[in-house]
């Protein structure tokens, strides 16, 4: 179990979830519609994946309003930030690890 792929976080390895965390980590919080536009997914897909991440304690969801407009804010938790950083580092290690030449086997 020395290959870095064993350290990958299955929860974040789903591309949409990895993108959600990538958007939330550098800032304090992001509004739902902006996040949807930045990561280019539908409302329903974003809702589904953000619920999974929230249940895992990787992000928090806050509902509020500005004037009459309802707003949903998403924010990465410390646990989520650490999980994303670890996963990102692991992906980098996999990228830089020597590849086995498939023809040689």
């Amino acid at each position: 179990m020395t290959h870095p792929r064993h350290r990958l976080d299955d929860l974040i390895h789903v591309p949409v979830r990895f993108s959600i965390m990538a958007a939330l980590v550098p800032v304090d919080r992001v509004e739902f519609k902006t996040l949807r536009d930045v990561i280019e997914v539908s409302d329903s897909l974003l809702s589904k994946h953000m619920t999974v991440l929230a249940e895992a304690g990787y992000l928090t969801i806050t509902k509020g309003s500005v004037g009459r407009r309802p707003r949903t804010w998403l924010s990465a938790t410390d646990k989520g930030r650490k999980a994303f950083a670890d996963h990102y580092t692991t992906l980098g290690e996999i990228m830089n690890s020597p590849r086995v030449d498939q023809d040689a086997t």
């Binding site: 591309p15 990895f18 990538a22 958007a23 980590v25 550098p26 800032v27 930045v38 990561i39 990102y88």
Partner: peptide, 11 residues
């Protein structure tokens, strides 16, 4: 990683 970096810059 490329996707995450792009999103990071945008945000």
């Amino acid at each position: 990683i490329r996707d995450a970096d792009h999103i990071d810059r945008t945000i």
